[in-house]
Amino acid sequence: MYDASKIILGILIFLVLATSPFWYSKATGQSDYLPDPVILTKDTPGKDVCVMPTDYMRSSHMDLLNDWRNSVVRDGERKFVSPNGHEYKKSLSNTCMDCHANKTEFCDKCHNYMAVDDQTCWSCHVEPKEEL
């Protein structure tokens, strides 16, 4: 092999970059970490079901929130009827956060895990005081 030192160095850099997830997980030891969002329900009787099924909420809650935002702000539509017939007020702070009363233990868990920035919501909407 010719120019071995340079080429091997190059290949090593490539290998390290290409396998960086492995080294990083070894270094942090966080590879099997999974977020465990906790739901701390405020005392709101009768609202023990979410507005939409969990599967949908896990992947697409931002769609719902965006939809709520637009219909409330632009159209003044504030009522939401869930697929199973319950009626809710479309409100992040006043409906969602009634049940998911603990932003750090609920929202932040996954949002941090997935590095999803939610400042766009929380720079205006007020997160509930965490009492626990």
Partner: peptide, 10 residues
């Protein structure tokens, strides 16, 4: 004193 039921502005 923040009213949690109403958003603030940015």
């Amino acid at each position: 004193e923040t009213n949690p039921e109403y958003p603030t502005r940015t």
